[in-house]
Every structure is written in C-alpha cells, then in structure tokens.
Design a protein around this nucleic acid. Sequence first.
DNA 1: GCGGAAAGTTGAATCGGTTCAAAATATGAT
DNA 2: ATCATATTTTGAACCGATTCAACTTTCCGC
Lengths: 352, 352
Amino acid sequence: MAEAKMIKLRDVAEAAGVSQGTASNVFNRPELVREEVRERVREVARTLGYAGPSPKGRLLRSGKVNAIGIAAAEPLSYFFADPWARRLLTEVAEVCDARGAGIALVSVAGGKHLAWSIESALVDGFLLRCGGRELLVEVTQRRGLPFVALSLDTSEPDVPAIDIDDFGATRMAARHLLALGHRRFAILGIGLGPGPGRVPPEEVRATRFVNVRERARGYWAALTEAGIAEDMVPIHAVQNDGGNVGAALDLILAAEERPTALLAMSDLVALEALKALEARGVRVPEEISVVGFDGVPEAAESIPPLTTVEQPYRRIAERSVSAILDDDLPAGREILPLTLVVRGTTAPPVSG
Amino acid sequence: MAEAKMIKLRDVAEAAGVSQGTASNVFNRPELVREEVRERVREVARTLGYAGPSPKGRLLRSGKVNAIGIAAAEPLSYFFADPWARRLLTEVAEVCDARGAGIALVSVAGGKHLAWSIESALVDGFLLRCGGRELLVEVTQRRGLPFVALSLDTSEPDVPAIDIDDFGATRMAARHLLALGHRRFAILGIGLGPGPGRVPPEEVRATRFVNVRERARGYWAALTEAGIAEDMVPIHAVQNDGGNVGAALDLILAAEERPTALLAMSDLVALEALKALEARGVRVPEEISVVGFDGVPEAAESIPPLTTVEQPYRRIAERSVSAILDDDLPAGREILPLTLVVRGTTAPPVSG
DNA sequence: GCGGAAAGTTGAATCGGTTCAAAATATGAT
DNA sequence: ATCATATTTTGAACCGATTCAACTTTCCGC
C-alpha cells in the first residue's frame, strides 16, 4: 500500500542515461538541455512516475523554504475567529499565494510548548501578531530567522515592526465629523478598564496600550484644532469585545447636552453601539453619527453601513511578506496610514 | 546586518571537541550523552549563538516535514470567510498544534497556477476540501503524497475520503421533530437550482450532489417511518448562500396547511430562514420549528439559538490529520456520524 | 580542414542535519 | 587483574536535490 519507493532524480537520470545535473536542468532550466535529451528524460520520468523534483531537496540546497510563519500568542483558533486577524490573514494569504509562497500558522498559546513551534517551524521568517507580549519577539529572536512584529505594543526601536498610524487615523475620523458640523462628541475607548464609566484624560494617557493612547491623542488633536477642549469630550471605557457598550451609551445619552457624534476606538465597539442605539430607538445617523476604527468586513454589512477608518490590510500584508521573502526588513518601526471610509453612519448633526 | 553566518551543528561540534554525531545527540537524545559532555556542548552552543538543529537538515534526513497542506479550489480567502471552513480549520489547526505539526494553506483557484502550489508545497500530505471538483484529487494524486478528500462529491471507491453521514443526520433531525409531535413539514433544499420553487422528488434524486441526495433521503426515511409520504413534504430550492430563502418561505407560508416544522439543509439557510421568519412576524419555535444542518458557530448565537445536527468537526480533523501524519489513510470513503444539538428553535407544535 | 566560439553535458561539492554499526571507554563481578 | 557487559563516542553514509567549473561536442566561417 505504501508508495513502493519514491523514485528520485538520480533514478531518472540513471534510467535516461544522463548525469544527475542534466536531469536537474531538464526540470529547472530546460533551455539548457538539447531537445532530444530533454524529451527522453521527460519520457523516462513519466514512465517511472516521477512527479518532478521534490521540494525537500531543493529546500536544503537553496535554503529557501518559500513559506512564512504566522505566530500569535493565542490559540490557533484565534486566526479564524478574530475579525482583524481574519481580514489581515486573508490578504497575507493572497499575497503569499501570488508569490507562490506558503503560509504556516503557529500558535504559542501553551506556555512551554511555545518555544517549540517557533523554533521548529519550517519557514523563512515570521509575522508576529503581537499585542503587548514581547515574549513572542524574544523567542523569535532566539530562532535567528527574520521576523516582523505586527501591532507591537512596546516601542523598542530595534525590532522590525510594521504598524499603523493610530494618531493620524483618529484625527482624520474626528476631522470628518467636525467638517460635517459636529461639535459635541463622546468617545468609546478600549483598553481603559472594564467600564462603564468616564475615564479622565490623565488616566487615558497612562494606559499601557500605546495604540489606545495614540488614538485618543488623535481625537484630541482634531478636536483641539476646532477649539474643543479635552474635558469637553467624555471618554467612556468599554470592553474590547463590546461588553458594556450599552451601559456606556446609557450614560452618554443621559447627558444634558447629548453628543451628536460618537467616536469608537474599534469597529467591534462601534457595531455594538449601533445595535445598542437601535435598541434604544436612537436613529443613526439622524440623531447621532458614529465612526469606527479598523475597517473589518462586518463594518460594511451593518445597517446602516459603518463609517470607519480602515487599516491598510493589503499594504501591511504586502510589506511584511516582502520583508521576509525579499530580505527587506524594516529598520525599526514602520508606520502605514489608514484611510477614511465614509459610509452610512455619519451625517451633519440636526441643527438646533 | 545580515546574520553574519549561520553557525551549524558541525561548528558547534568542532568547537566543543566532539563528533558531529554526539553533538546531534545532545539535542535529540540527550540521555545518550554523558552529562559532562552534554553540558559542554550546550555551553558552546550558547556561546556561539546556535539556536538548535535547523529543521531543514532534519527534514531532509527524516523525510518528515511535519506539516500538512490544506487545499481548496477556491481563493485563499475562502478559508477565512466560509463558516464551515473556518470551523473545521480551527479544529485542524488545534489538532496539528497539539502534535507540533504545522499547517500550510494552499489555494488552487487560479487555473494553471494550480499545479504549482500542490506540487511544490512543503508538506507531508494534503487535506483536500473538495466539493465536486475531482480535478483537485487528480492533481494531488500526481504529486504522490498522501491525501484525504473532505466532502468529496463523487463516490470513487479508491480515493481516501472522510465524509459525514448525511443520511443518518437528516433522519435524526426529522425524527427529533416527529418525536415532538410535528406532522407537517417543509424542506429548504440546496444544490437544486436557484429557486425559489418547489422541486419534485425525482428531480432531487437526480441532482449531481450526493450529499444533497443523501440529506433528502434521510428526511424522507424518517418521515416515511412516521407514515408521511414524500409528496406531502415540499422541498423548496434555495441558494447555497441563503439567497431566495425569503421567497421560498413566502411560498411555504402561503400554503393552506402551513407546515409546523422546517428542515433546512444547512445552517446558513436555517439562519437566513430565522431572519426571514422574524421579519414576517412568524414566531419560532412557537409557530414553526426550525432545524439546521452543519453546526456552525453562528448557530449557537442566533435568537433563538438554532437546533441543528452538528458535524463532527473535531473527529474529522483528528481522523484526517492522523491519516496524513501517521500514515493511516482510510481505505476508501470513511463516514463519521453527526450529533443532534437541540437548542431553541424546536418545540412541540401548537395543538390544533 | 582548422581554430575558436557556442552549446551541451558531466562530476563533484554542497546544503544541515540524523542514524547506526563499530570502536573506545567505563563499570562490575569474580 | 580479567573478562563480560554496559555506556559513550566516533565516522561515514545518507536524505534529494542544485550549482558550477571543467570538459566534450557541435557549429561556423574562412
């Protein structure tokens, strides 16, 4: 039942009466081989059932696996469950596919097991989906393979990282609302504790998540340009997974001067807010405008479709795959811009 | 900047004054090496910055890549978009992870490109997500690596395939409803044309999708047991992605003897039906019960949560990964049972 | 018919390890 | 001490290809 015995290039060469080198050329640089010989070798290969040079041999010789590893400090299911991961991975997969490269998923959720996967995966380099844990970076450094850190939280200057311009993006989001005429805002912030409850600016500045800080700074920058002070804009803590959004909203809507626009630090939260708003009979965008952050696929499907700033998934994918495969690692932290996608949840505020 | 020069096992052995064989043992079978020597080699390795034996060398020698390829005749994004694929892949990923094996995703969507990926992926074998296209099987056979066909549609006896018991599952679903007291049914069928519209049994038997035929047979078998004839149960064609479910429902609800139970050939369709039913003000399960098929994660989240027959994702994953990695290919088509998951969309029919 | 260039082919080295029979060394019993 | 046995270590073969310098053959023009 087992494959009798894999025939190898040498067998073919022998059977065809040529040197192994020539046989190799038949498959890799056929133009170097005389047609007659080429055909003969091919014929023999066919007869013997030789499927072409095995990638294994090639790998060893060339050193290139032609595959990149994607690692996260989460269970593997994370890659298929999280919207951000799915979206990015789709692009990464496509980019790799176009280049004929493979992708290998590796999880490092289980403490000790961690080192193993990263240290033994057969890849040319890694994409690290960080999120604060520098442990991932450390382990990967030990392996000695090139890697790119994605959404790395610490700002160590010497680790190659590709990141997004959180500051510019949220500033853009706020400016969009400002341009529409909004003057009263509320922010739905993540990474600021479980919520619900208003979080003072100092506390926001003190969070250990850089991206949260930057997003807040971006909102404030735009608002300040328009003459709106930080304190005028309440930041409410909600959970990363959308928990407590309803509660936060109740607080926000109860204010005497109800805001006309909502800035959410993630699409997931914005989407949750949309649902909560509908449940409370508040019409979007007529009564209140909402802007998200991330540009997950679901954002285009909501009712109404969500206005948001979209991460440059494709570019992140292209840049990081190229970094690994073309040996073109970013020197430090490289920052990519997001784009504002205006959809149905933003409109001018009702006058009065 | 580039890694000075990768030090290899031989360098370490040399520097430590032992043979390469001993050095190899230090890393792979340390118990064979005297403690003193072992520590010395380890120390030298550390000093030199040797990260342990490179997987590349090991691969060539052992022949095992320790990774399995997952291929579909769809763009790579399919793996992250389709609920079934995501669910199964999550399990596959987990099973592989537990065994320290990697997974590589390969798409064969682009016609000619097809051969390349499958033929050059660095894996020990493939999981083929078929769906009628035997082309995938053919190409993979040419590569000569072990493979398992998942949801293969043709029933060629000699290709190793792992499948689910469609017949038993739908029979179970129908029996559940029957046991609750239902007597009037309608079936939402896929793979029977675009719909909407009732499809006669002969036509259902003639569809080229075996699984659709089997699912219908399962429903009929249970119904017949209970003395309900095939013709008494309308099968309505809807689209695979849930298209036309609303239209089909309108037809079904318009019947003079409105059915009290709905059998859907996929969760996606059932979920869509739930939405359409709600939009039409028909209460589930009070006025009508609904049973799905597949057990996708979303089925647990719907309101009310969907009663369905769940595919044995974990077992499919385990069985197929083991088939590849343990060289334990199914001889032909191997069939796994599904389980009925009773949730909130089924209840006894209102009497009268 | 000859020299030189072009085209085609060969053979050996190499990639980075693992494996295993055989050799060397240590241990224990007598 | 001595021999048998157990523990370590060695060295060379091997895994399946690619690469390239060197060698052979073919082709051309004169």
